[in-house]
Design a protein around this nucleic acid. Structure first.
Lengths: 189, 189, 189, 189
DNA sequence: CATGAATGAGCGTTCATTCAT
DNA sequence: AATGAATGAACGCTCATTCAT
């Protein structure tokens, strides 16, 4: 799964060591940008990955490309996670999981919103929206979410609350209480 | 009101021209940081304000001071706005107004979260929290908000949704639909 | 004496308050440059003198002029001190006094050497040289200094040792021991 | 000898081109700081060395590091020079050589005194003091220096006179005459 | 391909100097 | 004459990006 989502998709296949470096860089970048925000230096990423700075730029010609690649990886993970859920509670579960994860994966949201260095991944985001749309439909079919609710506001809440959890430094209790309000708003009266 | 909240409050009164520049810088900074995030350059702020770079630093000795000043101005405005509301619908109105405003004032939230260059205004934030707490109490007394809801999650939702509105570029309809879910979650069942 | 050496010598006479400011600035500058070296800021001098920065520049159009004025004041003091001495030991006494003073008046030497912002005061320095020359002649007449010694090397040693005392942070003992060597070198064999 | 004292001593060996640049920067810095004092700009050093400003900072992360490196280089040279001398006249020779060198190497002393940007090289300075102490002992043993003279005042004179020679712009004759006085002071009566 | 030295635009900040008040 | 706000060149330093090795 890791290998799939990380493999570059255009051009000739990479040599084994190049492929290994690519992943090490992505992992390091995830850590670094998580800890220090998108303003963190690319040198630091290289250092953490144990490669030279030139290697980072060979794999990702600009810093934006690097940020974009991290984001893509995360989106793919999220989409998979969403795809594995279902039923009346699937949407609520996904919502909860995402918010909890966000506490220790600031990148998730910071980048979803193209913070700082602008990044566009409309395609991948589209896939996530589809997956969440599936969960919403199932929940409405099961009667756990009001039929008045539509996908755009669900996505909007998902992103907002996840961002809030990350940047507001919410603890477990605050996360739970906040989600309780949102969930109450989603359920049928 | 604008003049009041922008006047500096310590030291001797500023000369008329200095006071004028101070405001021009704040306005320019608001625009610039809104458009380009807190990483935008102080030079750009000076250029936009039509003053030399030294003038910006004379008024705000560090970039952080400038960011802090903007934030303070905005918080003061918010607190005043909250203070002027009340009754069963006051909290909902304030929520709505804030979210709508945020569409054209990205700074509001971007800075509330002290993104990047750290800014601390605990006192002013505390005042805002108090004001919102007042609105919440009134609403609960009037029976328009469930007694199970507490202030922390209201603040959390306020910040999250406002941020989402800004950075997600929500249009009026999406704002309305998203708030509808949140309000439904706040109201008693 | 103070007033004499500080009065400006060209143009119309100064108003009383201007004259007072001129002296306050010189005193402040002496302190500031003594404490922080010639790199200290002119603002700091103004602050210490209790005047606005514009006033400093009205009296001394450039920073160099200010440094030059301080130096002139000090030279005048030195010349007077030298002029009051005489006899076989006068030169040794002056040497000793200067070195001791320098310990708490770094400016004396720092500026004698036109440190940093170049300053030229050939005229005043000439006067000091003359005064020291007088002391040297008297000492040689009295037989306390070797007839082989000439004025240039005496001045050279004066400046060098004074500088060393200042910047080397010599304590009283080291000053005494170092001067003992120099004096032994000056005396006839 | 030059190459030895200039090679950096920690971390992996530098690439040939980096090593070349490192030396060019040191040489340029020596010139620039000699001509304009420690306040001279790092840009000027880069220009003189024919490299970009970033290269200077890659080799010496702060201006202080650059100043420190120059100083270290010079101290090493001095220590070696002192170490190669000996006998009754060694101290006098070293003194003379140092003073003469200083005429075209202002940095020698300017930095020995850590002017302006503070630099600390206590260890290297200690080595120099030891070397001079050796020369002093030998001279006293040979009877060419009075037993009353101790190391601290010898160092004090060394620094003072060398500084004077540099900043006073002494010509060969003045150097000789001044040293004659100092040497007479050092010799036994 | 990987390396890491070099580049240079750009940033935040300082400060001598000018000039409107 | 005094004030102090405004100016803008210059500085130390960072970092995304390029390219010789």
């Amino acid at each position: 799964m890791e290998e799939v989502s990380s493999r570059q998709t255009e051009g000739p296949p990479l040599r084994a060591d190049a492929q290994r470096n690519r992943i090490r860089i992505l992992v390091a970048a995830d850590e670094v940008f998580t800890e220090n925000g998108p303003g963190a230096s690319t040198e630091e990423v290289a250092r953490r990955a144990g490669v030279a700075i030139g290697t980072v730029f060979r794999h990702f010609p600009t810093k934006g490309d690097l940020l974009g690649a991290i984001m893509k990886r995360l989106l793919v993970e999220l989409i998979e996670s969403a795809g594995q859920r279902g039923g009346g509670e699937g949407l609520f579960e996904f919502f909860t999981e995402l918010t909890a994860q966000a506490s220790y994966k600031r990148t998730v949201v910071g980048l979803l919103e193209s913070g700082g260095t602008a990044v566009r991944l409309p395609e991948a985001v589209g896939h996530l929206t589809e997956a969440v749309g599936g969960l919403l439909s199932e929940a409405q079919a099961a009667g756990t979410v009001s039929p008045d609710v539509a996908l755009p506001e669900v996505m909007a809440l998902l992103v907002s609350v996840t961002h809030g959890a990350v940047h507001g430094g919410w603890d477990a209790e605050l996360r739970e209480r906040t989600l309780a309000v949102v969930f109450a708003g989603l359920r049928p009266r």
